[in-house]
Simulated scan of single mutants.
Amino acid sequence: MSPRGVATPDVRERLFAAAERVVQRDGPGALTSRSVTTEAGCAKGLLHTHFAGLDEFVAELCLDRFARTATKARALSELVGKGTVAGNVDDVAQALFDSGGPAVSGLAMTRPAAALRVREALEGGAPGFATIQEAVTGYLEAERELGRVARTLDAGTAALAVVGTAHHLLMTSWPGAPDPRPEMTRLVATLVGRT
């Protein structure tokens, strides 16, 4: 445990990672500010020092994980013509399941105030599923121009299918449910081929 009065490095990420572990292990109902700080090995009040409350913390956790995946999706533009198209798209789709995936999504759904904060942030331009979909669409269009996917591929529809399926799998999974990743990989391969 961090001693009182000593700065805790990377507080947000430390608390976010601890929350993901609590939710994955014990489910969304087990998440409290105390369970997070205990799991993080830090002072009990640290979460409330950095966040207005548990709802703000949960919202910020969800938005942070969306932003990470959006950054990975935007980086697809640097991969045009490199690796395999299916592998590149699948990496982005799988990133949605990283960092707690279904557990974190379920957590946001159990806290209406947090869900509202996330929705308001997304409406205000924070990166989310739409940002990821746009990046995948642009990537698939560029790969189509290079002939690495079928000329008949509707890039926007394929991107919507990938992001929509990820959203569905995140929202209908729960801690301990079968791993949704293999389904995602099969979908991507079906949509864009194995190139």
Rank of each mutant, 00 (worst) to 15 (best):
residue 51 F to H: 08
residue 51 F to D: 01
residue 52 A to N: 00
residue 52 A to Y: 02
residue 52 A to W: 00
residue 54 L to W: 01
residue 54 L to N: 01
residue 54 L to K: 11
residue 55 D to Y: 03
residue 56 E to G: 03
residue 56 E to Y: 05
residue 56 E to K: 00
residue 56 E to L: 05
residue 57 F to Q: 01
residue 57 F to P: 01
residue 57 F to R: 03
residue 57 F to W: 00
residue 57 F to I: 00
residue 58 V to L: 03
residue 58 V to W: 01
residue 59 A to K: 02
residue 59 A to M: 10
residue 60 E to P: 01
residue 60 E to I: 01
residue 60 E to V: 08
residue 60 E to H: 09
residue 61 L to K: 00
residue 61 L to Y: 05
residue 62 C to D: 12
residue 62 C to R: 14
residue 62 C to H: 09
residue 62 C to A: 15
residue 62 C to Q: 12
residue 62 C to N: 09
residue 63 L to K: 03
residue 63 L to F: 07
residue 63 L to W: 02
residue 64 D to P: 04
residue 64 D to A: 12
residue 64 D to W: 12
residue 65 R to G: 02
residue 65 R to N: 10
residue 66 F to A: 00
residue 66 F to Y: 15
residue 66 F to T: 02
residue 67 A to M: 06
residue 67 A to N: 05
residue 67 A to K: 06
residue 68 R to E: 10
residue 69 T to F: 01
residue 69 T to E: 04
residue 69 T to L: 07
residue 70 A to M: 07
residue 70 A to G: 09
residue 71 T to R: 14
residue 71 T to F: 07
residue 71 T to K: 13
residue 71 T to N: 11
residue 72 K to H: 13
residue 72 K to T: 14
residue 72 K to M: 13
residue 73 A to W: 07
residue 76 L to C: 09
residue 76 L to P: 02
residue 76 L to T: 07
residue 76 L to S: 06
residue 77 S to D: 15
residue 78 E to P: 07
residue 78 E to M: 13
residue 78 E to W: 13
residue 78 E to Q: 15
residue 78 E to L: 15
residue 80 V to G: 06
residue 80 V to H: 07
residue 80 V to S: 03
residue 81 G to N: 12
residue 81 G to T: 12
residue 81 G to K: 10
residue 81 G to C: 12
residue 82 K to P: 06
residue 82 K to S: 14
residue 82 K to M: 13
residue 82 K to I: 13
residue 82 K to F: 10
residue 83 G to L: 07
residue 83 G to W: 10
residue 83 G to K: 09
residue 84 T to W: 12
residue 84 T to V: 12
residue 85 V to P: 06
residue 85 V to K: 05
residue 86 A to P: 07
residue 86 A to F: 11
residue 86 A to V: 13
residue 86 A to E: 14
residue 87 G to Q: 10
residue 88 N to F: 07
residue 89 V to R: 05
residue 89 V to M: 11
residue 90 D to T: 15
residue 90 D to A: 15
residue 90 D to R: 08
residue 91 D to V: 06
residue 91 D to Y: 06
residue 91 D to M: 11
residue 92 V to C: 07
residue 93 A to G: 11
residue 93 A to V: 08
residue 93 A to E: 05
residue 94 Q to A: 15
residue 94 Q to V: 14
residue 95 A to Q: 05
residue 95 A to L: 02
residue 95 A to E: 08
residue 96 L to C: 12
residue 97 F to Y: 13
residue 97 F to A: 05
residue 97 F to E: 03
residue 97 F to I: 02
residue 97 F to L: 12
residue 98 D to N: 13
residue 98 D to G: 10
residue 98 D to L: 14
residue 99 S to D: 14
residue 100 G to W: 02
residue 100 G to K: 01
residue 100 G to E: 00
residue 101 G to L: 06
residue 101 G to T: 09
residue 102 P to S: 14
residue 102 P to K: 09
residue 103 A to P: 03
residue 103 A to S: 14
residue 103 A to Y: 05
residue 103 A to I: 06
residue 103 A to L: 01
residue 103 A to V: 03
residue 104 V to G: 03
residue 104 V to E: 03
residue 104 V to N: 05
residue 105 S to N: 15
residue 105 S to V: 10
residue 106 G to T: 06
residue 106 G to R: 02
residue 106 G to D: 04
residue 107 L to H: 01
residue 107 L to S: 00
residue 107 L to F: 07
residue 108 A to F: 04
residue 108 A to N: 08
